[in-house]
Amino acid sequence: MLKILGKAASINVRKVLWTCDELDLAYEREDWGSGFRATDEPAFLQLNPNAMVPVLIDGELVLWESNTICRYLCAQYGQGKLLPAAPRARAEVEKWMDWQLADLNNSWRYAFMSLVRQSPAHQDPDQLAAGIAGWNKMMGVLEQQLQATGAYVCGEQFTLADIVLGVSVKRWLMAPMARPDYPAIAAYHARLADKTAVFAG
Rank of each mutant, 00 (worst) to 15 (best):
A43W: 02
L45P: 00
Q46M: 12
L47A: 12
L47C: 10
N48V: 04
N48W: 00
N48K: 01
P49H: 07
P49T: 03
N50S: 10
A51P: 12
A51T: 10
A51F: 07
A51Q: 13
M52W: 06
V53T: 08
V55E: 07
I57N: 07
I57P: 03
G59P: 08
E60F: 02
E60W: 04
E60M: 07
L61K: 05
L61Y: 02
L61F: 04
V62T: 15
E65G: 08
S66N: 12
S66H: 00
N67Y: 00
T68R: 03
T68L: 12
T68I: 14
I69T: 10
C70W: 01
Y72H: 09
C74M: 05
C74G: 06
A75W: 05
A75F: 08
Q76H: 07
Q76P: 04
Y77T: 01
Y77G: 00
Y77A: 11
Q79K: 15
Q79M: 14
A85H: 11
A85F: 11
A86S: 08
A89R: 15
A89G: 01
R90I: 07
R90P: 12
R90E: 10
A91G: 13
A91Y: 13
E92K: 15
E92H: 09
E94S: 04
W96F: 14
W96H: 03
D98Q: 06
W99K: 07
W99H: 02
Q100S: 04
Q100K: 05
Q100H: 13
Q100C: 11
L101I: 01
A102F: 01
L104T: 05
L104F: 09
N105D: 11
N105R: 10
N106G: 13
R109F: 10
Y110N: 14
A111D: 07
F112Y: 15
S114R: 13
L115N: 08
V116L: 05
V116T: 08
R117D: 10
P120V: 05
P120G: 05
Q123H: 10
Q123C: 12
Q123L: 14
D124K: 10
D126T: 15
Q127Y: 03
L128P: 09
A129F: 09
A129G: 08
A129Y: 02
A130T: 08
A130W: 04
G131P: 06
G131I: 10
I132L: 04
I132A: 08
A133S: 11
A133C: 09
G134K: 03
W135C: 05
N136C: 15
M138W: 01
M138V: 08
M139T: 01
M139E: 00
M139I: 05
G140Y: 03
V141P: 00
V141W: 00
L142Q: 04
L142R: 14
E143Y: 02
E143G: 05
E143I: 04
L146T: 00
T149I: 02
G150Y: 01
G150F: 08
G150T: 03
Y152G: 02
V153T: 11
V153L: 06
G155Y: 03
G155A: 11
G155V: 14
Q157E: 13
Q157C: 09
F158Q: 06
F158Y: 15
F158W: 14
L160W: 03
L160I: 12
L160K: 04
A161M: 14
A161Y: 06
D162I: 08
V164M: 02
V167E: 11
V167A: 03
S168V: 02
S168C: 05
